[in-house]
Design a protein around this nucleic acid. Structure first.
Lengths: 343, 343
DNA sequence: TTGTAGGCGTTATCAC
DNA sequence: GTGATAACGCCTACAA
């Protein structure tokens, strides 16, 4: 196949006996070009099969109208909602989204950020990998004034706006709820404690226990990767406990549901023997029996907001920093209720 | 903030008293450059804070190493799996993914494809919107030799490879299963019939009925958008039926589960009174009670394969077409079993 | 093994 | 209103 020559604004200019500059302006609907000329330009462009070359334009303008997105995984209910939200806002505003996943490793996060950097993204939306401890790989962006915005799994940095929910408060509320339902011995299953979302929820849990003078011991905390498989392992662990907990607060729904189902299979009654609470309000939470008490978390809204904040920065050429943290709302959704209420 | 001047290969060249061409080659690890020179180049690049400019390179090479992805929605279990698969393969091979959603409308699909076209993506991975009837908006790509690959929701086009599962066979198998379980009156809830996935599943259902001499009537077919809400509406409709079906095959799990749960709420016993089958094997399918019989569908694998085929085309500069259709496997996952087996 | 030079297609600046 | 011109930064044929 012989690729036809690409039509450029020069070709249009030549065919109309005007300059390329005029064609460029005409196509951009520049005010200082006569209606007639514009019409002729558009017509010729259409006739000749012209296609705008973003690459050349990007190179010249030093901008790409592209937003980079780096997330741990694309395929979780929360994350795909968040990305769907971003896409809508970005698309609306004329930005493209380049998306990559770190697969929970710092190594890929670093590599991906470098690619984004070289590809000259105009800004970055990031949710950090499990074990990212420092964010020096984003310094290059910050130094260049390219906005980096963290959402959900964040890092406190003077130059990077954050978007989160109040994980501490959510952890506190849900634990308090479990206590109100009669739980005295309440377990917590959490993720990597160096990640804000998990450590904050844990802190909320701890504080709720303390407030009600309930003892905490290491036996009550399990830290894993919150997968379904580890939910089952957790169930096994619970079954082997001398003194079983009356309630379990798991830091995500996937793991909570897996754990619940395994315990049910082994004859434990939920919520009578052990009641459960999760986090995220994934679709499975409203389907499992009994339905799972959880924290609702607006993924799509968070994605939209992140994109909106970024685009506002880009549009107004705002200096980044000092960091601004936006806290989105969440809701405790009570779905399990044991019969032994105390409070 | 005064943005520092960007370092270019010319700056490096000057500082080392060599030519920019040598620097360019050195950075690309070109064979004909001495080890020493390469080392000096890399060191200087690092020292001076050089960053490769993909834009300039892309413009010059007429390639972007970018793959465009257009899907109906990002946030479904299947689609986010597929995209996760694509991302991994693409990332591995040094390609970026630009992702956009059509939100099930042709209009956005057309707009997005135009953006992708202007952004000079090297290839396109597409799953079509509900009501896309012709694909003239992709002709521009095809004419230019830019590969367009359809997955899941496809369009038969001589120049576009397809990746699908055998929806006909899957629909047939699952219906046959319902029949074997004792169903005589079997309903089918489906999506837009101009979309291959839904019409094929319906065709399989029809043929299974016919094979077993079971009557089909319009009353047995409901066409909607397969949302949870419409699942509930379907339940209402079923409740109002004089002669209720013994089994229902719904073309996705979301809708199936919603319908099932609503019927349960109204006192219908599942699967004793009415048994259900869905499609997709979403996480909710294994959580709902009773677990949902469904067709397992490898989203991640499909995404990986789509990306692999595309990249192979790009790498080998293959002529696109004549179209090749790849059919991926699927599995019937039986989870509900009524007690009135016949076959 | 390295250098020279031209061009990829657009847009900003300055001029008329 | 429109035109001329010079970048944007890289790559590659050709030359040495």
């Amino acid at each position: 196949m012989i690729p036809e020559k690409e039509i450029t604004i020069y070709d249009i200019a030549k065919s109309l006996n005007i300059s390329a500059a005029t064609v460029s302006r005409g196509l951009k609907d520049h005010p200082g070009i006569s209606k007639l000329t514009k019409k002729r330009i558009f017509d010729a462009a259409k006739d000749m099969g012209y296609r705008f070359n973003s690459l050349a334009s990007n190179l010249r303008r030093q901008r790409t109208n592209t937003i980079g997105v780096i997330v741990p995984r694309l395929n979780s209910s929360f994350m795909s909602d968040a990305i769907a939200g971003m896409e809508q806002v970005a698309n609306q505003a004329g930005y493209n989204l380049i998306i990559s996943q770190s697969l929970e490793t710092v190594k890929k996060e670093v590599e991906n950020s470098l690619t984004m950097f070289n590809n000259r993204v105009d800004g970055l939306l990031v949710s950090l990998a499990y074990n990212t401890q420092d964010i020096s790989h984003f310094e290059a962006f910050i130094k260049k004034g390219i906005p980096v915005i963290f959402f959900d799994r964040i890092f406190e940095h003077i130059k990077c706006p954050n978007i989160i929910i109040d994980n501490y408060q959510a952890g506190y509320e849900i634990t308090k709820h479990l206590i109100a339902e009669g739980g005295r011995r309440i377990m917590h299953v959490s993720g990597n404690q160096s990640r804000n979302v998990y450590s904050e929820r844990f802190r909320g849990y701890r504080d709720a226990l303390e407030e009600f003078n309930l003892p905490f011991s290491d036996e009550l905390l399990i830290v894993n990767n919150l997968t379904a498989l580890e939910g089952i392992e957790t169930a096994v662990q619970i079954l082997s406990m001398e003194k079983k907990p009356e309630a379990v607060f798991v830091s995500n729904d996937t793991c909570a549901v897996a754990c619940m189902l395994e315990l049910k299979k082994q004859g434990i009654k939920i919520p009578e023997d052990i009641s459960f609470a999760g986090f995220n309000n994934d679709p499975i939470a409203k389907v499992v029996e009994p339905n799972l008490t959880t924290i609702n978390y607006h993924g799509e809204e968070m994605g939209e907001l992140a994109a909106n904040i970024l685009i506002r920065h880009l549009t107004n050429n705002l200096e980044i920093g000092p960091a601004h943290t936006t806290v989105l709302g969440h809701e405790l959704i009570v779905r399990q209720s044991s019969t032994k209420k105390i409070i």
